[in-house]
Structures are given as C-alpha cells and as structure tokens.
Design a protein around this nucleic acid. Sequence first.
DNA 1: TCCGAAACGATCACACTCGAACAAATGAGA
DNA 2: TCTCATTTGTTCGAGTGTGATCGTTTCGGA
Lengths: 383, 383
Amino acid sequence: MSPEQPLEGAGKSLFSLQRRERLMEELRAHGAITVRAIAAKLGVSELTIRRDVNILADEGLVSRVHGGATLPSRLDRSATGARPQQHSYSIGMVVPSLDYYWPQVISGARAEAEEQNLRILVRGSAYDAADNRRQVQALLDTQNIDGLIVAPDLTGEVGQELLRWLNALPIPVVLAERRSPGENPAHRLEWVATDHAFGAGMAVRHLWQEGHRQIGCLTDSSSPTSPHVVRGWRQALAALKIPADGAVHEDSAKLPTGGRAAHFDHVLELCRTTVTTAMLVHSDTQAVAFVQHCVDRGLQVPGDMAIVGYDDEVAYLAEPAISAVRPPKQYVGKVAVQLMAARLAEGRMRPVHRIELNPELILRESSIGGPRVPAAGALQESL
Amino acid sequence: MSPEQPLEGAGKSLFSLQRRERLMEELRAHGAITVRAIAAKLGVSELTIRRDVNILADEGLVSRVHGGATLPSRLDRSATGARPQQHSYSIGMVVPSLDYYWPQVISGARAEAEEQNLRILVRGSAYDAADNRRQVQALLDTQNIDGLIVAPDLTGEVGQELLRWLNALPIPVVLAERRSPGENPAHRLEWVATDHAFGAGMAVRHLWQEGHRQIGCLTDSSSPTSPHVVRGWRQALAALKIPADGAVHEDSAKLPTGGRAAHFDHVLELCRTTVTTAMLVHSDTQAVAFVQHCVDRGLQVPGDMAIVGYDDEVAYLAEPAISAVRPPKQYVGKVAVQLMAARLAEGRMRPVHRIELNPELILRESSIGGPRVPAAGALQESL
DNA sequence: TCCGAAACGATCACACTCGAACAAATGAGA
DNA sequence: TCTCATTTGTTCGAGTGTGATCGTTTCGGA
C-alpha cells in the first residue's frame, strides 16, 4: 500500500541496523528480551525498540510477544501465515574431476536438488587449491549463488588458507568428500564424507575371515583418498594383531611410463617373501591391472592371490570379477544437497552437521575362497 | 538443584509464547502434564496455564483433559478432523534420564516424529547397560517397534556386549549422544552425537581471545559427557601452546556432602598459585554454584575469574549470567528421528550415516572482558 | 447412585504494554 | 543554504495479559 517504502537495505542508516543486530545478539543469548530492558541497555526509547521488533518480526527473525520478543516460534501464528515465500535457491558445486568418481556424486546431488526444487550449477576444477578458488570465485561473481558445495584440496598451507577463505564466505558451504578440522579456521563448514578408513578395514577383515593372515596394500598416493585407505588398513591390521612392519605396502604414484609391470613384479616378489596372500588395491582401475598381471604371471586369483579393490567403477569388468569397496558416491552428493537445503531453510539456528557415510563391500570372485596353502609355492613357480 | 523450585518466579518471568513453548516441551518430554505442576514450575497461576492449554488445544497441538493436557490423541473428538492418516511406523526410544538433559532431546524427537508422521514410544532407564537392555527388550516384546533410538552406556565389557546385541537386532538402531566404533561389532549402528570436544575447545579459544592465558577445567566425571569435555579442553590447550601439566583440572565427583564449598576453595587456591584466570566448568548447574562461590569469596566475575559453563540449562539464571556451551539437544533428537525415518523408508541400500553436531557458544557476562592483571591480588585477599 | 474434592471458566480489577498522532532531530541532496 | 525524507522521542487513550473470586462442572471412590 505504501508506494515509496524502500526495499530492504535501501535507505536505512547503519545505526538502526547495528541496533537490530545487537538486539538479535541479546535475543540469542537470552532466548527472549523485554522492550524495556533493551531500551534501557541501548539508551533509546521503548518505541524505537518496538519498531525494530516489528521490522524483525516481519522478516520472521523474531516472534513478537506482549512486552518484548522471543526467538521465532512455531506457536507464533502470525509467522505461520507469512511464511510461504519458499523461494527457490541456487547452489554452486565445484568438483575436482568431471570424469572420475565425481559423476556419480553429481548425479546424486542433481537428483536430490530436483527433489528439493533447487537449481544446481556444477563446475569442474583442477585438483589444486588455487584453481578451485578461482572456480568458486567465478561462480560467486557471475551467478547468483545461495550456497556452495565444494571438494577442494585442503593439504598444505595453501589448503588451510583456502579453508579459511571458504569459512569466511557469506553463504553456507558444504564440503563433499573432504573433512575440515572442527577447529577455529573452519568452524562454520559442514561436510559429508565417506569413511574410507572403515571401508579399508572392512576389506581387511573380510580377507581375514577368508583365511588370509598376511594382507598387503597397494595404493596410489596421488589420490586424496589414499591416506585414509592406508590408515584404515593399518588400524585393521593392528586390531587383528597382524604385525604392520612385516606387511607389504607399496605405492604406485610417480612411476616412470611403462614402469607399472616392473612395479607389479616387485610387489609380487615382496608378497612371495612375506607369504602375503591377499592385497587391498586402491583404485579399482589399478586393481584390474593388477589382477590381469597376476593372471599373466600364472597366479590363480583368488587361490594364490586374493584381491579386493578400493572403489568400484570398473571392478566388475575384470576376469575374475573383483571384490571391491564401493563408496556411496550418489549419497555423498545427495546428503550434501540435503545439508545445504536444510541450512538454507533453517538458517543459523541449525547446528553444524558433520556426516560420515560408510562404504559397502561388494563381494565378487577375486576374494572368495581361502588361500591355497602353501601359497608361496605357486608364487615361486611364477617368478 | 531441585526441579520443583520455581526458578523463573523471581523476576525472570516468561512471556506467554515462551510459556507455551515450554509447556509443549514438557508435554513432549513427558507425554502429559498437570496444570498444577506446570503452574508451580513456571511460577504462574493455574488459570494462566489453563488459558495456555486452551490456546494450544484450539490449534490442535494438545488434547485437553481434566486436570491437565496430553499430546494430541485420536481419541480426542474435539480434534479438528485433520487427522485421517495412520502412523506409518513406530519407533521406540530409550534414554537414561527423564529429568535431565534428555527431555529436550525427546522433545526434538517428538516434534520431528510428528512431522514425519511417526509414532514414538519413550522409556526411561537407569544409566547401566543391563537395565537399558531390559527396557529395550520390554519395548520389543510388548510393542510393535519398527526402529529403536537408544542412548546406552557403552563402557566396559558389558557395554560392548550390549553393542553387539543392538547391532544384531532385526530392526534399525540409532544411537543418540553415543558413538559406536566403526568396527565390526557395530557396523550397522548409526548415530548422532554432539561434538562435546569441539564445544569445550570453542570455550577455551573464546577465553583465550578474551586475554586469558591460564585456563582451567572443573568437571564432574560421573557424567558420560565429561571425558569428551576434558579431551577438547586438553586439545585446545595444546593447540594454543598452553602447557597442560600446569593447568588446573579438578573433578567434583564423589565429594562428601557439604564438601563442595571446601572443594571450591581448594580449586580457587589452585587457581591462585597457577595464576589461572578462567575456568571451564562442566554442568552449568555446577557453574552456577561456582560463580556464586566466587562472588561470596569477593572475587569479581569475570574480572578476577572468568567462567564458561558446559551445558546451558540454568546458566542464564546466575548473577552474573554465565556464558555457556549449549549442545543442540533438540537437534540430537530431531536428527535421530530423521535418520530413523530415512532408514525405514530406504532400507538397506542407504549407507550407514554417522553424524556429529556442533554445540553453540552462548556469550553472557561471566566471560566477557579480559582478566584484571595481576588477578592474583584479589584471589589472595579472598582466601 | 451419591458425595466431596478438585478442576474449570466467567467476570472483574489491575498493571502494564501498544501504537497512533504529532513533534523534534538528523542527514542527504538540490 | 534550504528542503525533504528518514529516524527517533513524547503523550495518551485503547488494548492485552494476568490474577482473584466464586459459582458451576467434572472426576473418582464408596
């Protein structure tokens, strides 16, 4: 009805805004305030406070009551009527790869976004923190983003700086498949991540139950997942009282071109000397190659060498098909969007959520049936 | 602190909306209330409570009965008819206390259950694992439970056995404010818990920012929360490079009756010799008593001794009002029910979720404004 | 079925709060 | 400098929440 009433933020002096901010602070601290007390505290008239309360109540930030205001309450029926502004939000999503691992995460996120009536904008970035930040900045600048889902590299000083920067953004941020320390530079960040350590442990315990007593680990440290897999593997060994210093642990990062076959032979030699009959291989791509290599060298899989892959993109394609730990990628995306939707709907009152999801162990042929003892014999013949 | 005491009666009167909110909380926590009890608890006349009940009944939020009110029931024929749907699932909930901490958790759970159209059956149990198991068994036997939310004592061998038993139950189980190891005996259990260590750390960092350099900790190890608080306190000290071995850490469990004052004096003496100017006090009830003791001994709060309470039940009642870490109790219940609802809807395909919630730091007077240096002077006079 | 105790609600009284109307102060822009 | 829009303060009648009284209704046990 009032044609010249300015929209939010147009003509209000900083002073009144500060006062309202202060009012909200008091409200959060005490749960409720009286007009009289606040007026005295801030040194203004009660009427001014009442007007502030009315403004805040119109925005749904407080509930008006006779004599003061309280935090918004469902019992406040004036609020229930004026709340159908279910205005739909846009979420930006920046992931480090658009062809490996992340497509499924994105797919889960997209499905949930549709469900929640949210728009989602996906961008790929390089794995390094600097490019990640550029991509996020681009999204912030060009699109109208209400929230951000991101999976940056957080290692090193650059990563920590990025973490601080993300934490200070004016929009909510959810990390996917990344963890932030609860501590200070990241206390506002929420995340959802697969418990890779649990997944690795599950694989080790499965191999143990199949009768293996020496269980090795072959990883690719160029992946950010790798440290968690190694940690889970070590913890499981410790829990099963397998001495970790005698266990085979090799890494295939930074091999020279064509050096893979030689490295695999090296690994098999180590397995022979340590009587290792089972391997957990990170990245199922590598697991497929490793199984192929074993077969080529005349080893029976799983008879001479049982194998569980970590990750389940192509594991089923190998011959024999590879048992694999499958991270709940779809759910990582889905839960990330759920977190974001809830955050956007509920605002600051909602506590920070940090969610771990357990992966699943998919059993196929490469690990079923115990080791042939002595396994060392077959290994010896093959080399 | 006796719960009968009308704490709010003395000058801390509630607004009508808060009163109704409180009433609903009591109702959800206990299932039913009497006008008389609530009137006494809130320090208002019975007539006022009756009027509140009428208002809530008009909105269909409660069912009126002679002498009090209950949660809305289908048998209540005054119900507005908007209740044609049957409950989809029934959830059992067993918590270790019905008067402390847990009522708010239950309230959050009930609110969410209503939202999700679930029935929820609450039982209290003793803190020990054996009784917990009995209560769960009773629910399983007599009711038709589709899921279970439970908060058992998991320490010791008995606790581990209980964990195995819960894990093997044929219905989904969600732990509230308890963590299960990801490992084998509990791989199916989901949980939601407050990150108390983070909360304690947040308090310590706040005190550090206010200028305190020796920050002590006063706990009550009879509470299962206590170890996490101590851990967070230690970690924060380490992160801030405060030597932990010189820090004051006292526990008030198992004091002789009337020994509290003597113990507080002992604590203050320790603070004096170690130049400790700030304390994190677990259980805000104890924090209130401690603040009172400091004031009685002539110490300025926060000038001579800054105090942050852990937990926020009565912290605001102290003089000066106490800054406190507030666990998101309502959300613990709410998220537990959300987990259960999603599990019941999606079945085994859904990965196991494990959720940590961050508490919030409510800043009040007892910790704002740095220490007066040298603080030792005032302490010395007081002893 | 009856009876006593308790709970209930209509009414009034009181204290306090609310908001409209108007006035004064402040700041921005012509 | 003036003017106009905005914000803040004052006054006062209307409105609201609460409690006390008291007659009526409801409950539960004999």
